[in-house]
């Protein structure tokens, strides 16, 4: 066990939330819950990134003049990555919701287990 677990409380929180989202995505049989799980997972990654970019006492990377002093601003890269990540997460959510809508139209249920059970019944 390393020494920084408590100091990195934001990152630690983020990975716990990530695992919560992961298990929701993996274990819930209700599609809407699965989609929420996916969003929790991605949001945890954004929290992790934001925590990685933060440096105590520094400002957001909006320059006021040419030749900014790197010691005054936080790291801009994690912010840029979060921006990209959010857009991807929104896109995937839209697609997943559309699929859920279609599934509901076809089977009348959003619960994957229920659908699989009724389909197994059709086969036999």
């Amino acid at each position: 066990m390393g020494e920084n677990l408590l100091r990195n409380y934001l990152e630690a929180g983020a990975v716990v939330i990530f695992s919560v989202g992961f298990s929701t995505l993996l274990l819930q049989s209700n599609l809407i819950k699965k989609i929420i799980g996916f969003n929790i997972m991605d949001t945890a990654v954004f929290l992790f990134l934001a925590a990685k970019g933060y440096i105590a006492g520094r400002r957001a990377p909006i320059l006021t003049g040419p030749g900014g002093d790197p010691a005054q601003y936080i790291n801009p890269i994690p912010s840029a990555l979060v921006l990209t990540g959010i857009v991807i997460s929104v896109s995937v959510t839209a697609f997943a919701l559309a699929l859920a809508l279609r599934l509901y139209e076809r089977y009348g249920s959003l619960d994957l287990n229920e659908i699989l059970l009724s389909r197994e019944g059709e086969k036999t």
């Binding site: 992961f22 996916f38 990654v45 997943a96």
Partner: peptide
């Protein structure tokens, strides 16, 4: 539709692991 949903969610687990 059902197959795609299973495909999508399995893939999302994979890309989540890759992203972190």
């Amino acid at each position: 539709v059902l197959a795609t949903i299973r495909y999508l969610f399995m893939s999302l687990l994979g890309s989540g692991l890759f992203l972190i």
